[in-house]
Design a protein around this nucleic acid. Sequence first.
DNA 1: AACGCTTGTTCCGAATATTGGAACAGCTAT
DNA 2: ATAGCTGTTCCAATATTCGGAACAAGCGTT
Lengths: 300, 300
Amino acid sequence: MAVRGDIQALGDIDALGENQPLGDGAAADCNAGRVAGAVCDTGTLGKALAVLEVVATADAPLRFTDIHALLRQPRGTLHRHLSHLVEEGLLVQRADLAYEPGLRLLAFAHRAWSRNDLRRIARPHLDRLHAETGETVHLGVLRKTEIVYLDKVESRQTVRMESQIGRVSPAYCTGLGKAALSALSPARLDASLAGIAFHPFTVNTHRSRCSLVADLDEIRKKGYAIDAEEHEVEIRCVAAPVATGDGAGGGVVGGISVTGPAYRVTIGQLEAWSGLVREVAAAVAHDAAIGLAPVAAGKD
Amino acid sequence: MAVRGDIQALGDIDALGENQPLGDGAAADCNAGRVAGAVCDTGTLGKALAVLEVVATADAPLRFTDIHALLRQPRGTLHRHLSHLVEEGLLVQRADLAYEPGLRLLAFAHRAWSRNDLRRIARPHLDRLHAETGETVHLGVLRKTEIVYLDKVESRQTVRMESQIGRVSPAYCTGLGKAALSALSPARLDASLAGIAFHPFTVNTHRSRCSLVADLDEIRKKGYAIDAEEHEVEIRCVAAPVATGDGAGGGVVGGISVTGPAYRVTIGQLEAWSGLVREVAAAVAHDAAIGLAPVAAGKD
DNA sequence: AACGCTTGTTCCGAATATTGGAACAGCTAT
DNA sequence: ATAGCTGTTCCAATATTCGGAACAAGCGTT
């Protein structure tokens, strides 16, 4: 059961909107713009979360006027949203009236993180991978067009929720992200690709859908992805995908990576590790498959 | 009751509902019940968050019926709320239809945590405190009746390296919590005490508002709090409060603690550390006062 | 197989919360 | 004092939510 990325055949996926066949006729619409408008219609909740997102994404506490300028909501409405968010503890209003993220977000995340199955299952494998490579090991999960870091084993013993866990990075320019994308079914991949805005972080960053898709094809063939300073200069990594459930349907798709500074970790070294990384990723996927609810998804 | 803790400056505190004088005439209404109903009126957002809270608090993925039984919302309404939460990424619906916390919560928390001023300021002090005591050091912040752990420096990687960051514990039976409570203004303390449900975690846990208030009075006098296995058996700690802004009004109130196993850390040892803990807490508060926006809160 | 029972989803009129413009306070700098 | 800015409150029009009830599917029993 649950073979993997080749089952898009069954059900199949009309739920993902228009699923144009990709891979062959793809050369034409290389940088077909992102779907911009109307993220989703979640009523009042969505509007309130948009406010929360703005405040959380900013890198300094925002005052009312700042938020107003960014969201262009009417003042009365915005004010009510902010009040509600503050009252719920998702935001905090400081004495100088500026808003910043509230502590309740931490509490939510702690519970989300501490009993995340994939993370729990992967932990020992990450330790092993770290022991054998000596470099930093990451576990990440794909969410739309981004990779969310779920866990990390670092060279030193800094195990805390240190800067990484919960951090999000673009999928198209990170090893983890590309590995995860390569494991998606065509339909899901297409949906994800449609949302990408290619931003040139370094000289090596993919600049178009075309080059990314070509890279993904190769990654799919080889079974591992290499990030050659595509997101940050002087940082390289090798990653392999981890897919739970059937890769096509509702399963979680992520990856495992080994990261290091360019001066110490050559491309050759990464390739030497690729087999190991693939093995570990496969082991995690295996444990997840047996250790978890059998979901019994496809049955139509 | 739209207004809440943001009026420290003006009038003064009649906004906090009935503010009975506490500390002296308190002997009468010892276990005056908690204010139960009507947590707050945040409209649709509040109802949706109630759903999120239930799912996040549960220790296993919940199915529709489970949630329905816990919340007693009409099925149609609940279904819409769940759909919206899933669409927003705050919840994830697994293949077996059960709901679990979504990854977006992690992303929010990361941003809330990584640029939290108090945490950034306190970090070096925590390291120092850990270096001098050799035991686990915590930084926590009070939120209503609970302590939220903001940071931690641990002895070594013990088994439960489960990062406690983001975890919440009751304030009335932890060192950090009691220290923080002791630093509250009478009005805020009263509001917080009203929300406490005394649960006997151990034989030493405070069982009534009376004994807690008495303890808090002494803590206020001494400047530090001791948790003598009141929350978990075999765990003791000493803590000192950290209050930013003016402790009375809108400032954040938290604490710093040193924790250890009872077999290794005696009450006497904790008392020996109390001066140090107080110093470090004061240093953090000082740094927070100078290093931060001058807020210009206190004006009464 | 047919039956009852449970679970999850969809529908739609009625009730209610949200909307957003405009007026109102408080503060600062001119 | 005046003008301008910020943040807050008010209220009728409106769009959303509410929640009961009907609708599908799935599961176990007789």
